[in-house]
Design a protein around this nucleic acid. Structure first.
Lengths: 249, 249
DNA sequence: TTAAAAATTGCATTAAACTGCAATTAATGC
DNA sequence: GCATTAATTGCAGTTTAATGCAATTTTTAA
């Protein structure tokens, strides 16, 4: 394995987890800890991460999570976020709804890729502001204390004035017949507006939410262009999705 | 767990709760109290929190400081914020521009008082969301990475649609003849719009900024209803303010 | 004043960092 | 190709840092 590859690997790990342990990396790459130590030292000298006793942390290390809630199924959400990353191309304009999966996606956006990113979510905005080349536009409005996203008339109004390439629509429930549903009426309104403002709708959704149903309807399944779960497409049992014009990832 | 992570964790706890108990942290992190004590000592030495018997408190009881910039003149700003608090009455609608003084003010808003609060500042919004009875409305728009406030057309547009009781207009320069001035043109536009949307304009301003001048003009002194500094009114030398219809606090 | 909690100090243990060196691998010129 | 040079890597021995524990002093609050 080339040194450069190790460097990239380490940086990637740091980007994703905000931290790495020297011993973990040595294990994963099957090299001695000394080698990893030297790698980290170099990356430290070139200001790409911060070397600390026992490993390294990302430069703008900010584990600040304004929601302050525990993120469940973090592992799955991370996998989903990784897949979602693949859909984003340099120069695009994207829209991130709230939710912890999208927060994970925001964390992972590489700093160097140039993007314009709309979001009504406070924690996501905080994350994005740390990315040098991402232009952040906050969809303002009355803040819902619970979800920490902007809702209400002026937020929806602001959404009505934009058109983005991709919307990553965090999804709490997706049902093959009933479509996307949501517990909170105000958030339903927001999500409807978001769909309306997007050329392409991507739903990151952990598999256990497939088939579940909540109080209010956002839209039918046909409105979703891509459904991303942590499973491999062929593992998704519900054939109904396969018959529809929806890409599974 | 890396030392750095513990440090971040402790700082985070301090940010959220304003104070932490040493034993709580030791429990939460599963390390000895000695370790936490050493951590807190280091953070104290690097001015990131204040070590007290039994734990630590946030500096001057303040600050979510996302950019990691040092808050200058914190003590003065705290005094100003305390004075500003006295102007706010139950049920009012207020508007907080950005700036660290207003951030201090936001931190100090009592949770029990019912308020509606507009702001285009991300760190201030984060603070306010922690206050149970404060309704937060975020003025959305393109986020300035530097100041972490929303600027640009849609923010100004949103401002044009509101009318608040009091605007707390963080002020970088106030000059008896030239009025309020600012370095950043986009922020000037925001502040102009804020003044326009307010029945009463309050300028919290540390005394050393009185008399200074910057590139762009926001408004004349006559537009300001109240000027708050950390000094007692009779200590403010510039008589010019006393001849104008401006209240000194 | 006094008992309990916390801070300090010194010390032992462990893990990680550093150093120099030899072995290996990759790069270069011929 | 092939030999020479330079860079990379792993190892052993040593040094340094991190952490927890126990004994002692200080602070706090009843």
């Amino acid at each position: 394995m080339l040194k450069e590859e190790r460097h990239q690997f380490i940086l990637n790990e740091v980007r994703i987890h905000n931290r790495v342990l020297l011993t973990d990396i040595a294990d994963l790459l099957n090299v001695s800890v000394d080698t990893v130590r030297r790698d980290i030292k170099e990356l430290h000298n070139s200001q790409q991460l911060k070397k600390v006793h026992g490993g390294a942390i990302s430069l703008g290390f900010n584990n600040y999570n304004p929601i302050g809630k525990k993120i469940y199924s973090l592992e799955k959400k991370s996998q989903i976020a990784e897949k979602a990353l693949g859909l984003i191309k340099e120069g695009q304009v994207i829209l991130l709804s709230g939710g912890t999966t999208n927060l994970e996606l925001a964390r992972r956006l590489p700093s160097k890729i140039q993007l314009t990113c709309f979001t009504p979510s406070l924690p996501i905005a905080v994350q994005l502001l740390g990315k040098t080349n991402v232009e952040v536009i906050f969809i303002g409005g009355r803040m819902s204390k619970d979800s920490q996203i902007a809702v209400g008339g002026s937020a929806i109004n602001m959404l009505s004035e934009i058109k983005v390439d991709i919307c990553f629509l965090g999804t709490n429930s997706i049902h093959p017949i009933e479509g996307l549903t949501e517990f909170d009426w105000e958030i339903v309104q927001m999500k409807k507006a978001m769909i309306h403002s997007s050329r392409k709708v991507v739903s990151p959704c952990i598999s256990e939410k497939i088939g579940s149903l909540q109080r209010y309807k956002i839209c039918g399944v046909e409105e979703v262009d891509v459904l991303i779960t942590e499973l491999e497409p062929w593992d998704i049992k519900l054939d109904v999705f396969k018959n529809m014009n929806i890409q599974l990832l």
